[in-house]
Amino acid sequence: MTFNFNEEHNRRKTNSTKWDSVDKVFGNTEVLPLWVADMDFACAPGIVEAITKRAQHPIYGYGHIPEDFFASAMKWANKRYNTSIKREWLTTVPGVVPALNLAIDAFTKPGDEIIIQPPVYFPFFSTIKNNGRNIIENCLIEEDGYYYMDLEDLQNKITTKTKMIILCSPANPIGRVWTKEELSGLLEICKKNKIIVIADEIHADLVYEKGSHTPFYSLSEDAANMSITFMSPSKTFNIAGLFSSLAIIPNPDLSIEFTHAIARASLENLNIFGIESVIAAYNEGEEWLDELLVYLKGNAEYIHNYLKTNIPEVKMRVTEATYLGWLDFRGLGLKGDHLNEFIINDAKLGLNEGRGFGQNGDGFMRLNYACTKKTLEEAMALLEKAVKAYKLNV
């Protein structure tokens, strides 16, 4: 391999949320942090070079977004997903979570209903609630750690107040890549009921089977006209702290409304280093990403096999996408606060509690495996030791 993903980088005292906030988040400075979704790997060299070059100019004023920025995203979508994006479909947003707030503001009113599909990325809950809209939960069906959409339940929960669904594709935290058939089924229900689809596709590049991700807008002309899709290199290339993303809006009427929401929130500008990093990522990062995906899948397989061999009471399927493992502790009889305390105080691990992704996440923990093999080996050893001690005491 050309890139060394086994190289250790000390991130402490770099103002890293993941590493420097453990005491605040977990109340324990000794935990090994495997939680918030950024990677412990150095960025692709082209990104580092582009940022370094820009940093050498000693003035950091407001940034102009050049056409190269949009062209790089269009070229990337064509290469990775075999889709054609028109320039007029694109606008910028500082991040996907702010963009969710903008979409809710633009296309719904207080008291309207918005559908989500738990277990799902926890800001979906807070953005809806904080904007005075009502959450409708179309919970996913789980069978032995594998999740499916419940389209019958989706249809049954729609009312005249239901205006939007927020789709997580690929799905976080469960690591599913939705099939074209699943997405088409969701499309038909939403089309019939005139529901706007907001597709969070921030993990779209992190799929292990190349070409397996289907962008929602690419399903059909109807899908394009009733949806907004968010794309970003932030998770893919480990540049989340540079706050630069894009919205794909084929419908000009939706685009106008969304642009007005951006203006109301004064979110037109992007980080000047983010602009450079997006262009470099999409134009020069493909080889790095392809090698990264091999490494990440290897990490997922390592965890799966380690648990199966050494801690069979805890399960994790090898994910289809993302670098986030969904660990099932129900076999140990651990749930709720008891599980959370066990992970933090006994296993000394900093993970994301499953309940944050919805009540059907109780008994689960999300583990970020975008780290070195050495770190994962340490984490699994800590977990095994804690589980053995727990079993002796129950």
Rank of each mutant, 00 (worst) to 15 (best):
G285P: 04
D40V: 04
F216H: 02
R12Q: 09
V97Q: 07
V48D: 07
G298A: 04
Y217S: 07
G350N: 05
L351I: 01
E286K: 11
K161V: 00
G61V: 15
L270M: 05
A199V: 14
D150C: 05
R11V: 06
I114F: 00
C190N: 01
F364V: 06
L334W: 03
M39F: 05
I303D: 01
E268M: 12
I239V: 15
L183P: 02
L167K: 03
L187K: 09
H9F: 11
K391F: 07
Q56S: 12
A300Q: 00
A55R: 15
T236A: 13
Y62V: 10
A381M: 05
K109M: 03
L140W: 08
T229E: 03
L183C: 01
I228Q: 01
L382Q: 11
E49F: 04
K157V: 02
A106M: 09
A50G: 07
N101P: 06
E209T: 14
R54I: 11
K194G: 03
N6C: 08
I135H: 00
K75S: 08
H338V: 15
G350W: 00
S72C: 06
S126L: 06
E313I: 06
F243E: 10
L339E: 02
I248Q: 02
I195H: 01
L349S: 01
Y208S: 06
A171T: 13
A321K: 11
F5P: 05
D346Y: 06
I198C: 02
Q117K: 12
I275S: 05
E378T: 15
E313K: 13
N352V: 05
M1L: 12
W76A: 09
I248P: 01
E284G: 07
A263L: 09
I116D: 01
L293M: 08
K315N: 05
E188D: 15
R133I: 00
A42D: 05
K157W: 00
E7P: 03
D40W: 08
L382W: 04
S212A: 15
I47E: 06
A280K: 09
A106E: 13
N15S: 12
R11Q: 14
D23I: 13
T91W: 07
Y390W: 14
K374T: 12
R330I: 07
R176N: 03
D205H: 06
A204H: 04
I344W: 00
M231Y: 04
L270Q: 02
A265C: 12
L392M: 10
F26R: 06
A224G: 07
D222L: 11
E221F: 07
H260I: 14
I136R: 01
G274W: 03
A106P: 11
N310A: 06
P312L: 14
H260F: 08
S255D: 06
S266T: 13
T91E: 07
K235G: 04
H203T: 13
N225M: 12
G63M: 09
K163V: 01
R330Q: 08
A370Y: 02
S227D: 04
A71R: 13
K180R: 08
E181M: 04
G274C: 11
W19V: 12
E291P: 14
Y217L: 05
P110W: 01
K297P: 04
K86A: 11
S245T: 10
W89D: 01
E8G: 05
G132Q: 03
V48C: 08
D346R: 11
C371N: 09
